[in-house]
């Protein structure tokens, strides 16, 4: 088990890194009232094809960090590179897929047209985008629901559609912001396994924001623990469990050890706060 304390410089995996973050800081509301230091001097490298989870209590900046990667927020200082490009370039180059906590489907479009939306916005012809969307529908297990309205789907199915939509442009990196937080435990387990399977099949790099340490251990190659006020990385550790992961990975004795390791680190964050 590789462990390290924060502040020893970026960690690189054996594979070359896709994401390089260095000296990243983000201050909210610098111009109005009390500024809030959401992120403070973050250094992080994410290996190509790896599954990384960002975990920490609310206010630790994990979602903020994810939104910086997705070019939804601009950092105050520091640099971010995704495959050698700035986030804005990576986004314009279709390399980013983003799944939000809510499915955020367009309720006036059927499932198929929702999944094809990013391709449609990029000007891809209908035949091509429909065939891509159908491929993704079978990947996420929504066959038979191509023409259903979003409001006719269950919460879990809506989030499956949102994942398929995020994958439609064949991005290099999939960013997920607490995607299953609103779902019940059983649905959540199933979708976690779907996510693990999609990661195995496509080899895409995944960054998952979650507040569940068990979810993070179950899915990740590496876990980044963050602490609030200001948002900092307090610990990064690798999870060395057999792949492919399944719900049985939780029976592995190492699983509990990783969960304890993460929980202890989270406890420290709460104690400081």
């Amino acid at each position: 088990m590789a462990e390290r304390a924060a502040g020893e410089g970026p960690v690189t995996t054996a594979a070359s890194s896709l994401v390089d973050i260095s000296g990243l800081s983000l201050v909210y509301g610098a111009r109005v009232g009390t500024p809030v230091q959401a992120l403070d001097d973050i250094d992080l490298a994410i290996g190509e094809g790896s599954f990384v989870s960002l975990i920490g209590p609310s206010g630790c900046g994990k979602s903020t960090l994810l939104r910086v990667l997705g070019d939804l927020l601009a950092p105050t200082a520091g640099s971010v590179s995704i495959g050698g490009k700035r986030p804005v370039e990576a986004r314009l180059d279709r390399q980013i897929g983003f799944v939000f906590q809510e499915p955020a489907l367009l309720e006036w479009r059927c499932v198929l047209d929702n999944i094809a939306l990013p391709l449609e916005l990029r000007g891809v012809a209908r035949a091509e985008r429909d065939s891509k969307a159908r491929e993704l529908i079978s990947l996420v297990g929504l066959e038979g629901f191509e023409r259903a309205w979003p409001r006719q789907l269950s919460g879990g199915m809506r989030q499956r559609a949102a994942i398929a939509r995020a994958l439609s442009t064949d991005p290099r990196i999939l960013l997920l912001d607490e995607p299953f937080g609103a779902l019940d435990q059983i649905t959540r387990d199933r979708l976690n396994m779907e996510l693990a399977r999609i990661h195995e099949i496509t080899g895409i790099t995944v960054v998952l924001v979650t507040h569940s340490i068990r979810e993070a251990v179950l899915l990740s190659d590496r876990i980044v623990v963050m602490t609030p006020r200001p948002g900092r990385i307090s610990k990064i550790f690798d999870v060395d469990l057999d792949r492919p992961r399944s719900l049985r990975s939780r029976a592995d004795e190492r699983f509990d050890a990783y969960v304890r390791l993460g929980s202890d680190e989270l406890e420290k964050g709460y104690a400081d706060a």
Partner: peptide
């Protein structure tokens, strides 16, 4: 309109007219 859907359009690099005709107007 839903702010998260606006983010979805941002990630997909949607243009101003696309935001109007494919999101705000149908909404």
């Amino acid at each position: 309109y839903d702010r998260t859907i606006m983010d979805v359009f941002h990630i997909a690099a949607a243009t101003g007219p696309q935001r109007f005709f494919k999101m705000r107007l149908p909404n």
